[in-house]
Amino acid sequence: MRSTADRIRQAVSFELIGILIVTPLFAWVFDHPMGDMGVLVVLGATAATAWNYLFNLIFDHVLNWRRGDVRKTLPLRIVHAALFEATLLLLLLPIFAWWLDASLVTVLLMEISFAAFYMVYAFVFTWGYDTLFPPQRTGRTTA
């Protein structure tokens, strides 16, 4: 299992790198001013950072409980990335619609684009992070 400090480092570095990539890219793709998109991205990143910490903690506890190990296979990495993005999409959809003063359908299409980007990014980032900072092996807990 990862320490709290390691989980915080993972979540913060994930979001900071993501913000640096996605803000200019999506301002250009969706033809919104950088400032407007930047506020939206930072708002989303803040929510995503908190959710990233909680989601990964829950996911690791479930893995440890079910398998006695938190290491992820390729199929588990795909499930991990997809579940994270799907749940985050549900959390952010109404906030994005309100901020952009747009319909839920319009924002859903934008969110799907964000989710597709971040799903690939989460997969690559997490794999790279696990390679640079391998999680500690743990046995099954009895509680």
Rank of each mutant, 00 (worst) to 15 (best):
R2T: 01
S3W: 11
T4A: 15
T4G: 09
D6W: 01
D6Y: 03
D6M: 12
I8M: 13
A11V: 11
V12A: 13
S13D: 07
S13V: 11
E15N: 09
L16V: 14
I17G: 05
I19F: 02
I19W: 00
I19V: 12
P24M: 04
L25H: 05
A27S: 15
A27R: 06
A27E: 06
W28R: 03
V29D: 04
P33S: 15
G35S: 14
D36L: 13
G38V: 07
V39L: 13
L40T: 07
L40D: 02
V41T: 11
V41N: 05
V41Q: 12
V42D: 00
L43P: 02
L43V: 15
A45R: 01
T46C: 05
T46D: 01
T46S: 10
A47E: 00
T49S: 09
A50H: 03
A50V: 14
N52P: 04
Y53R: 08
I58M: 13
F59N: 10
F59H: 06
N64G: 12
N64A: 11
N64T: 13
R66V: 12
R66F: 06
G68P: 06
D69I: 02
V70M: 10
R71A: 12
K72D: 11
L74W: 14
P75D: 09
V79R: 05
A81M: 07
A82T: 14
L83E: 07
E85P: 05
T87N: 11
L88T: 03
L88F: 06
L89S: 10
L89F: 13
L92S: 01
L93E: 01
L93D: 00
I95F: 10
A97K: 01
W98G: 00
W98L: 12
L100M: 04
D101C: 01
S103W: 00
V105R: 03
V105N: 05
T106G: 04
V107F: 03
V107N: 02
V107G: 01
L109S: 08
L109A: 05
M110S: 02
E111Y: 00
E111I: 00
F114M: 06
A115N: 02
A115M: 10
A116F: 07
A116G: 12
F117I: 07
Y118S: 05
Y118F: 12
M119E: 04
Y121H: 03
F123H: 09
T131Q: 06
F133M: 07
T141V: 15
T142M: 14
A143F: 10
